[in-house]
Simulated assay, not measured.
Amino acid sequence: MIRFGVIGTNWITDHLIEAAREVGGFALTAVYSRTEEKAAAFAEKHGIPFTFTDAAAMAESGEIDAVYIASPTSMHAEQAILFMSKGKHVLCEKPAASNARELQRMIEAAERHDVVFMEALKSTLLPGFQAVLENLPKLGTVRRYFASYCQYSSRYDAYRAGQVLNAFKPEFSNGALMDLGVYCIYPMVVLFGQPEEVRASGYLLDSGVDGQGSLIAKYPGMEASIMYSKISNSSLLAEIQGEEGTMTIDSINIPKTITIHYRDGRAEDVSKPTERHTMSYEVEAFIGLIRGGQSKLNSHANSLAAMQVLDEARRQQGLVFPADLK
């Protein structure tokens, strides 16, 4: 069994725990929160035997082998490096860091201490994405990748009423690009590699983060178009357009229904069923890495390539986080 600690007591950690309990080899043994009250309440809710309010003490603890980090993005690097320096494996919620400089330090720490570090980006580990990978050659020469993730945030209602919650605070390295745009960019990098050029624009809110944006990434012989937003909705399908056919994907963040529309009018459903909680696949992949497996999907190289696209998009938009200035 791999004994896990968790950092963060919000809804995403609840979902991770629910999903992880569907995976063999997962044991939940510790939780960290800044307050004893929150740690105790979360521990009681999930049956967790050990609580911590000191991250360093948790990292030193002999009660865990690995940690899932779901704190604000601006805290990821410091916490991940702390735990890796104590020999703990790290599964870090997306985006893994505020910028590529932080991420590079995290990767170097993992290599230096011989531990597993993986970005918890579930999309590319789902059966649906496996179907995309396996059937991509049927499209012939690919000419365009299009992905959209526009989801109106309930926290934006509070923002409009004058209350700026964490989702819209630059000190936490948040905003539409980091929260939703990454779901479009990471699969692009996994499928096609790092682009030659990125052109980006976005709408910045008064709080200092972006509410929405778009980018075009250029590749040899093709381009990728991406839209993302936390202040509006979209129901557009993702598409990969090839010379022999076009693949449609119902949702780029949780791909389930994948169909190829050939030029001769035929349509082929190549979907693969998602049989478990969508987050269980990332836990399974992470445990597999700890046990000596290899991942070509959520790899250090792909995480770094995606983060470099995020950095360049933010640079062009004039979107600067406090973490960039450290």
Rank of each mutant, 00 (worst) to 15 (best):
Ala96Ser: 12
Thr73Leu: 06
His300Pro: 14
Leu205Gly: 03
Ala285Val: 12
Lys86Gln: 11
Glu93Met: 08
Ser33Lys: 07
Tyr159Cys: 03
Ala100Cys: 10
Gly265Ile: 10
Val190Thr: 02
Ala131Glu: 00
Arg34Ser: 09
Ile185His: 00
His15Leu: 11
Leu289Cys: 09
Cys184Phe: 09
Glu171Asp: 08
Ala59Lys: 05
Lys256Met: 09
Leu91Lys: 03
Pro255Glu: 02
Pro220Gln: 01
Met227Gln: 08
Thr35Gln: 03
Gly193Thr: 07
Leu215Asn: 00
Thr246Ile: 13
His15Trp: 14
Val23Gln: 01
Glu244Thr: 15
Leu310Ile: 15
Thr53His: 07
Gly211Pro: 06
Pro195Asn: 01
Ser173Pro: 09
Pro187Lys: 03
Asp157Gln: 12
Ala59Arg: 04
Gln163Thr: 14
Lys256Cys: 11
Pro95Leu: 05
Asn302Arg: 12
Ala66Lys: 02
Leu177Phe: 13
Ala56Cys: 07
Tyr228His: 15
Asp210Glu: 08
Ser74Ala: 15
Glu93Cys: 12
Asp269Ile: 13
Tyr156Trp: 15
Gly208Phe: 11
Ser71Gln: 08
Gly25Gln: 01
Ser123Met: 08
Met58Leu: 14
Glu22Arg: 06
Phe50Ile: 09
Leu91Pro: 04
Glu93Trp: 11
Thr246Lys: 12
Ser280Val: 06
Ser207Thr: 13
Lys296His: 14
Gly318Asn: 03
Ala161Asn: 10
Asp114Val: 13
Ile249Asn: 00
Glu243Tyr: 14
Ile260Pro: 03
Lys256Asn: 13
Arg3Gln: 04
Ser33Ile: 08
